[in-house]
Design a protein around this nucleic acid. Structure first.
Length: 153
DNA sequence: GCCAACGTTGGC
DNA sequence: GCCAACGTTGGC
C-alpha cells in the first residue's frame, strides 16, 4: 500500500467533479516520470491526496484512491484530442493511466499551511520548481496531511 | 501576465 | 551525447 499526491486543475476536474463521477480515468498525463509511477508503482487501494493546482487557492482538496492498475490512455490515439500523440500506436501505447475514485472532499489545505508544517518539508509538491503532477507521498506525510485536514484551519 | 524551473526536442 | 532553444507547469 502506497500513497500518492495527484494534481488536478479544478477548472478541468475538481474534487466535486471527481466525487460526482463514479471513477475518474486519469487521462492526459504526458510526463514520463508521472506515467512510470502509474504504470509501475500504483496498485489498487493506494491512497491519493487530491490536489488542486493552477488555481486561485492551490492545495489539498480531498482524498481519493486508486481503483485500477495502469492501462493505455485512449486520448493519445484521438487526433481530435489535445492529448493526441502521433507517435503512439495501439501496439505500442506510450501513455498510460489509472482510474481514481474520490473518497471525500476535505477542507482546503492550502500551500502556506503545508509549508508551515515542518513534518511536510520534504514533500515533493512543496519543493521549489516541482512540476510533477503525480508524486509519491510517504506514510508519515500521509498521516500528517490527514491530521491537518481534520483540524480546523 | 510574469517568470523560474524543469522537460523535451533536435541540430551538430 | 551535448546543449541551446523551445514549450509547459504552476505559484504568485
Amino acid at each position: 500500500m502506497q500513497y500518492w499526491l495527484m494534481k488536478s486543475e479544478p477548472g478541468e476536474v475538481s474534487i466535486d467533479d471527481a466525487l460526482a463521477a463514479k471513477t475518474n480515468p486519469w487521462f492526459g498525463v504526458r510526463n514520463y516520470q508521472a506515467r512510470n509511477f502509474m504504470r509501475d508503482n500504483m496498485r489498487v487501494g493506494d491512497g491519493v491526496v487530491f490536489y488542486h493546482s493552477s488555481c486561485a487557492e492551490p492545495g489539498v482538496a480531498g482524498i481519493a484512491e486508486v481503483v485500477s492498475t495502469a492501462y493505455p490512455d485512449d486520448t493519445q490515439f484521438d487526433a481530435a484530442s489535445k492529448y493526441f500523440d502521433p507517435k503512439a500506436t495501439a501496439e505500442n501505447p506510450r501513455w498510460m493511466m489509472v482510474d481514481i475514485k474520490a473518497i471525500r472532499k476535505t477542507r482546503l489545505l492550502g500551500l502556506p499551511e503545508m509549508r508551515a508544517c515542518e513534518a511536510l518539508s520534504d514533500m515533493v509538491v512543496l519543493k521549489k520548481g516541482s512540476r510533477l503532477s503525480i508524486n509519491p507521498v510517504t506514510a508519515a506525510e500521509w498521516k500528517v496531511v490527514m491530521r491537518l485536514l481534520d483540524k480546523k484551519a
